[in-house]
Write a protein that binds this DNA or RNA. Structure first.
Lengths: 191, 191
DNA sequence: CCTTTTGTGGATCGTGCGATACAGAATTTG
DNA sequence: CAAATTCTGTATCGCACGATCCACAAAAGG
């Protein structure tokens, strides 16, 4: 019935995500985006409505890829401690690459208060991470790998909170050697 | 020899700090600042050179007031666990007030990579916090309040990292009731 | 093949940005 | 009191911003 879209929407969102991730929302201009995406301003606005719309799409994509990766990472074989350690350090490695940190943490810092849509999206992602982690902890408790005295959900929330701290700190202290001992202390709460 | 400055520089920096803290660097315009500070643009540029200069002054002020408060908080009488718990929860209370978070965390997220001056300033502040905390832990170890098996500096770095996570999470989960159990888990690493 | 519909990139819109210029007011020195 | 110096607010600078417009291109239906 009409002309087809020429650019790959998914790819465009992926590139926009990279840019927002590295520079933040305000410091990334629509012109920066059109250049990086190889898409004219008209097409961009037709597809996403506004800079904000594209940002939300980028956030959603981040959530989905991150959730998929983290879940896959947590479903690796091995004892809970090993799996969680690997997940934490992998997230740090991603954050220190280019010193971009974590898009969600950056979004919280830059866009809150004010952007309630982002607040909701971020909160949901953190809750989902916590719940996935809690499930791993529950299973590990059943297998007797960790102590069972604590509520798995609270423990998982603690670990997610610590991870966010790690993602912040790794932006000014990217040396993994300095961060690994902190991870070990956090993991000692599983004893 | 010439006309005296009419506005209180310290007070102006304090107000600028509030604004940057609440809205972030990019989202705060120079005109916003002149209005909030009650100072004309000419005077502002004469005093601070640039928007960036004023931001750095605000960061410095934040470091100084924060360091002073935190140190005072840590020098309260009481056992280490109580003192550290109070310090963590006080920082959370400050961050959730107005959902502004922590200026340092916001600075890390919004201005890095790129602003090396801010990176250095933030890193120094985190190191200072860690060292002050390590001193408290050392003293507590000597008094037999906490277990002495761990390096106090590493333990302090863990607590600072966890605190930063708490400051991030509290921006989307401001309910202290939900955060207190996480603090207790973090404090259990002192056992 | 012609009409209709949608996508295209570039030109353009009005606005607000950070920064500067400047005329006048205030203060000190001689 | 006059000269010199600095601070004051405001007007203005050039520019980049997000958003929109639009002439043309491409695909589908009759």
């Amino acid at each position: 019935m009409a002309r087809l879209r020429e650019f790959d929407t998914e790819l465009a969102v992926a590139r926009a995500m990279e840019l927002f991730w590295l520079r933040g929302y305000e410091a990334t201009s629509v012109r920066d985006l059109t250049e990086a995406l190889g898409v004219g301003q008209g097409s961009l606005y037709a597809a996403f409505g506004s800079k904000d719309g594209l940002y939300r799409a980028a956030l959603t994509r981040y959530r989905e890829t991150l959730a998929a990766d983290a879940l896959a990472s947590l479903e690796e074989s091995g004892d809970a401690r090993t799996v969680i350690r690997a997940m934490l350090l992998e997230r740090v490695a991603i954050a220190t690459d280019g010193a971009r940190g974590c898009l969600l943490v950056n979004a919280i810092a830059e866009r809150l208060p004010g952007d309630t849509a982002t607040a909701r999206a971020v909160r949901e992602t953190l809750d989902a991470s916590r719940d996935a982690l809690a499930e791993v902890l529950r299973a590990a408790g059943r297998r007797g790998e960790i102590r069972t005295g604590r509520d798995p959900v609270t423990l998982a929330a603690f670990l997610v909170t610590f991870l966010n701290g790690l993602l912040v700190v790794s932006k000014v202290t990217p040396e993994v050697r300095e961060l690994e001992p902190l991870v070990e202390i956090a993991l000692s709460t599983l004893d």
